[in-house]
Each structure stands twice: as structure tokens, then as C-alpha cells.
Amino acid sequence: MALLEAAAVTKAFGQLTALSSVDFVVEEGQLHGLIGPNGSGKSTLLKCIAGAELPSGGRIHFRGRDITQATPAERARAGLSLKFQVTSVFPELSVYDNVLLALQARSPLTALTFSRTRADLHGRVMEILGELRLLDRAAATAAVLSHGEQQWLEIAMALASRPQLLLLDEPTGGMSLEERRATGELLVPLRQSCSIVIVEHDLDFIREICDVLTVLDQGRVLETGTVEQIQRSRKVQEVYLTRV
């Protein structure tokens, strides 16, 4: 059974059809890239999976459970985690508190009120900050981080709850070349613990780290396959590469 199965997902905004009967499958441990020209529906598909948008048609199953109409919180508790395209860290809080905030989401109310899980979660917060190279920035306010660091903090927050499926919407957006390379190095080891779907414009980045690619065009799936298969695909070359 696949980890995530989206079947015939359609999303319309008024007269505009952003997704048209899209089938999308993610297997356990897969690093799945989602690419396509601007406006092809990549981010919309990711939002439909995460619950930020409800599909107009089709079904989405996660670990065998139908989550088509589930709220974002229900999906998060089921094991889905989303890193937004636009960074949405909590600027007034410290880097440490941003991660703690994400990590303590499943603590019961009484535990939160009496701060019973703070000490237990401390180790995990530091571990994640270490993995994302933010340990020396732990006490800094999130607002003062560079754009690249904020992106890493976003990934740290998305990873905090140990999701089964991590959805990353343009994780390298606005990053320098060095930061992109470092982000790639950070993401590859994560496949040991979860599957990842990445929406990205940087094809070199995607080629280096993904096992499987799905190409979207005008709200439809153009092709799905390994990186080599996609590179050889005539349809992709004709439709996608000429428009990017």
C-alpha cells in the first residue's frame, strides 16, 4: 500500500481549473519531486494534500485512511507535515521556541499547562536544531535570521513532529547557491525517517536528490517516472522544458 494516494484530484477556483483529475502516489521512503512550469498546479496539489485547500473532486488517502475532507490539524496528527512556500516562522519567538512550538503540538492540555513535556522535548529540539545547523542560533529571535536560515527553521519545524510524509514547497526559494547545496545535504538523510515531496523550480537541485519525479502542466500530470525517465521523456522536453 502506498503511503499517499491522490486519485483524480480536481481543484477549481471559480472558472479556473488549477488541478484536473490528478493522480499522485508517494511510496514509503521516497523522495518525490513535483515539478512543472509556473501555474501548473504544483503548490495547489501540495495544499490539497496538506489540507490548506479542499479539493473540488477526487479522493486523497494517507496510510489507507481517507483524508480528503480532514482539517489541517487532523492531517498533521495523522503524520503529514507541510513547509510553506512563503516562510511562516513565528518572528517574535526565538528559534528554539519555534521548534518547541511545533514539537509540543501533540502534548495534552494539562501537560502544556504545567509545562510537563518541556524538559523531555528539550533534547529533541536541540537534536533538530543540530541537524538543521541552527544550534548556535537557538536563542536568536526568528525575525533576525537570514532568509536561508528561516527556510531551514521552517524545515526544522515541519520535521519536529517526526512526520511520515514531509511536504516541502520550494525549500530553496530565495537561497544562495551555497545554501541550496547545504539544503540538499540536509534533506537526503531525512529519507531514512520519512517520505518527502518537494515542489521546486531548481531542476539541478531536484535531479540530484529525488528518486521519482512527477511533472505537472496546466493542472494535469504530464509524466511520472525516475529522473532518467523524465529526462528522456519527449513530452516533458516538448511541453515543460521549452516553457520554463
Partner: peptide, 20 residues
């Protein structure tokens, strides 16, 4: 920690739902 959750809700309520 409850206060931290309140701070999160005050700053970005929608984001908090995506944490669960």
C-alpha cells in the same frame, strides 16, 4: 508551554493548525 501555544495562536493561528 500553554502560554507558548497561545503566543503561536496570536501570531499565526493558521500555521498552528498545520502543527496539529
Amino acid at each position: 508551554q500553554f502560554g507558548l501555544a497561545l503566543a503561536g495562536i496570536r501570531i499565526n493561528e493558521a500555521r498552528m493548525a498545520f502543527f496539529g
